[in-house]
Amino acid sequence: MQTTMTSLIEINKLNLYYGSFHALKNVSMRIPEKAITAFIGPSGCGKSTLLRTLNRMNDMIPGTRIEGEISISGTDIYSGSVDVETLRKKVGMVFQQPNPFPKSIYDNIAYGPRLHGIRDRKTLDEIVETSLRSAVLWEEVKDYLKRSAFSLSGGQQQRLCIARALAVNPDILLMDEATSALDPISTLKIEELVQELKNRYTIVMVTHNMHQAARVSNQTVFFLNGEVVEYDETEKLFSNPSDQRTEDYISGRFG
């Protein structure tokens, strides 16, 4: 199924348990570099769980146990030698609800770089500008950088969160239903933005909106009850799915 693209993330026989609950079952896949991969599937099938294994946000949930292997550019991210903070710097994340800090727009973007030791005012200024430009927010906020991030609209806040994630210079961007709390116009803006970003970043997005997956992504993975049912080129998966369950789901027969 893989094309000529090189894969950046390789997931091998991954099993994840929340206590005794088996949330991910024998998941294997290769996620290509500089492309958009969409996770779809009914609620509770494990999309967010898998996404959170990629930046190890699950580590913080007590009782989580993981088996199998995930490697990013050839390094097993669960091996002892990997430092979680460095991993998360390389694998950024945008959440369902926009979650800016109660700080100024500037300080929101500068939060990440400052964590990693950047203090120099000029460097920070540059990072803030490039990140905001990358998130197509610069023109709207350049005169109000000192204003509270809460003064922005929901869609702007979400683009701010994207800019904040980009500011630490990640390779991968994880987006968990990043547009589900937004109005259609803001959603469209973010979809356009994501199209733009895929030239520079590897993007993995969870979405409940099948049209969005079809519109935006290059690869689509369909999950059911913690298992990967089908993983293919988006066009192929939506036009000619090889599994009956996929067909049922995308044609809206369940989920």
Binding site: N55, M57, M60, E85, T86, L87, R88, K89, G92, M93, F95, Q97, N99, P100, F101, P102, Y111, G112, L115, H116, C161, R164, A165, V168
Partner: peptide, 15 residues
């Protein structure tokens, strides 16, 4: 303090 605010910080690589 909302959990989302901690998550945002951790996701940027904060200790």
């Amino acid at each position: 303090v909302p959990k989302a605010r901690r998550d945002a910080s951790f996701a940027l690589g904060a200790t």
